[in-house]
Amino acid sequence: MTDPDPTTTGPLAPDDITADSPFTLPGFFGALSEGRLVAARCTECDEHMLPPRTACYSCGGRAVSLSEQPKTGEVVSYTSVNRPPSAFEHLAPVTVAVVELDSSARLTGRVDAALADVAIGDRVELRVRDPEAAGIDPAFDLSYEAEWPVHVFELA
């Protein structure tokens, strides 16, 4: 999964971009459902990108490799969605945060805690959940998303 030798990477070929590669969303969520959070890492400038993609927004390079991410990090910013989209309505208020993982990759996610219990700098850990078990209306999913897990942060 993780490229052991990033110096060998270059632009991906069309045949590399398949539904079982984390460079595509089905592959990324397939890995996530097995408990692995995989980012793209730019071998030129070390930018980390979630979900993975085939080019680096930071330097424009296409020499990207895959890099399994730590699930721990800290809260960069946070809020509470008091009127969320319909599919999340019965979860309201939904606490959400931007989290910087210990690798420096950043992603947004729900936080399984009340707003008052969260602060900038708090340590959190990413958990993987089944969307229906998480209480999200299955009607929210597009057909190809139905098997994709969702992520949520818990206070460490």
Partner: peptide, 20 residues
């Protein structure tokens, strides 16, 4: 893939900017 599926809205995304 990651943000809509976390239940965010326009006010929430701007709140993330405001909080920071």
């Amino acid at each position: 893939a990651l943000e809509q599926r976390s239940g965010i809205t326009a006010p929430a995304t701007y709140a993330l900017l405001a909080r920071r």
